[in-house]
Simulated assay, not measured.
Amino acid sequence: MPLSNQVILVTGAGGGLGGTAALALAKQGAQIILLDKRIPKLERIYDAIVNDGGPEPVMYPFDLAGASEEQYQEMADAIEQRYGALQGLLHSAAELSAYTPIAIHKTQDWGHTLNVNLNAPFLLCRVLLPLLQKSVHASIVFTSDSSTRKPQAYSGAFGVSKIALEGFAKILAEELEAGGKIRVNSLIPGPVNSPLRKKVYPGEDKSVLPEMSSLAPIYCYLFDTASIGVTGQIIDAQNFTR
């Protein structure tokens, strides 16, 4: 169990990719903190982990977009009180209402998307960095998107947020590299049969897409000791080799 005694927080844990990552990491012995705003979805992945024999996870209902800075800090304080330190942080939560032309993009949707996809990762990193620094080694993983390589029309706030998130990840990686404790990388999951993919491309033949479970080895690698020393990288799941 290579991830035994590792505490990893997963945002968007009730979603497709977040749930897949949480289950994969728990299978390797990690203690998972499941963070999502939808309690029924948290309960489903909680049950899946327990039924699969993984360590009992912790559910933390939390609205990334609506929470105040004080609530973010309260969450960090609660984690410190329970665990003392943190070894992993996976930013998997994502907001994408629909592909929309900029000319008719609603201001409210724009702000909400940026809050979930960009501002929340910043706030989480800021309040959780002290706990990650307490570990001998720790890993932060951001979830990017292939559209950042070639910005697409109509991707709106989602596209802008993912481009900015990759930049943020690289800045953070450079700031933390000298310390030698915390590695920071971005993962591009690529086209997989996920709920978000179904929402964006409803007419697509999903039978030709890889299942979300195909990403399990990548998630485990990024939080395992095998990735120590790998930082500031953009890892494309379609080209991943160990």
Results as ranks from 00 to 15, higher is better:
residue 49 I to T: 08
residue 27 K to I: 02
residue 24 A to S: 09
residue 56 E to I: 15
residue 20 T to L: 07
residue 36 D to P: 02
residue 34 L to K: 05
residue 63 D to H: 11
residue 12 G to K: 01
residue 21 A to F: 10
residue 6 Q to H: 14
residue 63 D to I: 14
residue 31 Q to P: 12
residue 4 S to D: 15
residue 29 G to K: 06
residue 52 D to F: 11
residue 56 E to Y: 11
residue 51 N to G: 05
residue 11 T to C: 09
residue 66 G to Q: 14
residue 10 V to W: 10
residue 46 Y to E: 14
residue 15 G to D: 05
residue 13 A to G: 13
residue 33 I to E: 07
residue 28 Q to C: 12
residue 32 I to G: 03
residue 29 G to E: 01
residue 54 G to M: 00
residue 33 I to G: 06
residue 30 A to W: 01
residue 55 P to H: 03
residue 19 G to V: 10
residue 23 L to I: 00
residue 50 V to Q: 14
residue 10 V to R: 05
residue 30 A to S: 15
residue 26 A to H: 06
residue 20 T to F: 08
residue 3 L to R: 03
residue 66 G to E: 13
residue 45 I to E: 00
residue 37 K to R: 13
residue 3 L to Y: 02
residue 56 E to P: 14
residue 51 N to C: 03
residue 24 A to N: 02
residue 38 R to Y: 13
residue 15 G to M: 04
residue 30 A to C: 07
residue 12 G to P: 03
residue 10 V to T: 08
residue 18 G to R: 07
residue 40 P to S: 05
residue 57 P to L: 12
residue 17 L to W: 10
residue 42 L to Y: 04
residue 60 Y to N: 12
residue 15 G to W: 07
residue 21 A to M: 03
residue 8 I to V: 04
residue 54 G to C: 00
residue 7 V to T: 14
residue 6 Q to F: 12
residue 56 E to M: 15
residue 8 I to C: 03
residue 27 K to P: 00
